[in-house]
């Protein structure tokens, strides 16, 4: 869980004009809200005196930043070289079918958001995907479906928790 000193509000409050803080501020905003809402851009602009337009320019340059809310579980399927030659395209299609969404979209129940990434550094277990901060390797279309259903069952059993505190990392 995020420490007090890592929180977005704390970082903004502590901001002392040191250069190079924009990206860490955006990262903590995304950590805090699950995405970067309009008002976070305004807060950051007020604190740093960087124009909102320039902040927006930085946000759209990096694939990590999202301007829309994300689902509780962020599914990142690797589309890197090793995974590509090991059939990641089929996995992406399987997940699209299973969840009924395209890459970049979030399911209507807010449970899953689907992205592709360009290598998770786990190539020897290709094809690979990450759900939250958990990595799953040696996938097949069938095992991908099983894993996603597992996450869905776990969420249903836990009841509807607010998305902000939803993390699944094994190594936190």
């Amino acid at each position: 869980m995020a420490h007090e000193t890592d929180s977005f509000v704390y970082r903004l409050w502590r901001y002392d004009g040191a250069p190079g803080e924009l990206i860490p501020l955006l990262q903590s905003a995304q950590e805090h809200f699950g995405y970067i809402p309009r008002r976070a851009i305004r807060y950051i602009s007020e604190a740093t005196h960087i124009p909102e337009s320039a902040i927006y320019g930085v946000i759209t340059f990096y694939s990590q930043f999202r301007l829309q809310p994300m689902g509780k579980h962020v599914v990142r399927i690797c589309a890197g070289t090793a995974c590509h030659v090991s059939g990641s395209k089929l996995l992406i299609e399987s997940v699209q079918d299973e969840l009924g969404i395209e890459v970049g979209e979030t399911t209507a129940d807010g449970l899953f958001t689907l992205f592709t990434v360009a290598c998770l550094g786990c190539c020897s277990l290709a094809p690979v995907m990450m759900v939250g901060e958990e990595t799953h390797g040696r996938l097949t279309p069938a095992s991908v479906r099983r894993i996603l259903r597992g996450y869905r069952r776990k969420s249903e059993a836990a009841g509807a928790r607010p998305a902000a505190e939803a993390t699944t990392g094994a190594d936190r």
Binding site: G20, E21, L22, I23, L26, V58, F61, Y62, Q64
Partner: peptide, 25 residues
């Protein structure tokens, strides 16, 4: 430690510097 934000070109050293400085890489 600076965390990258997902841009391949930031591996290029001058783009990496721009990214550490908080700009588009």
């Amino acid at each position: 430690i600076k965390q990258g934000a997902g841009a391949f070109v930031c591996g290029e050293e001058t783009a990496l510097f721009a990214s550490i400085e908080g700009e588009r890489g």
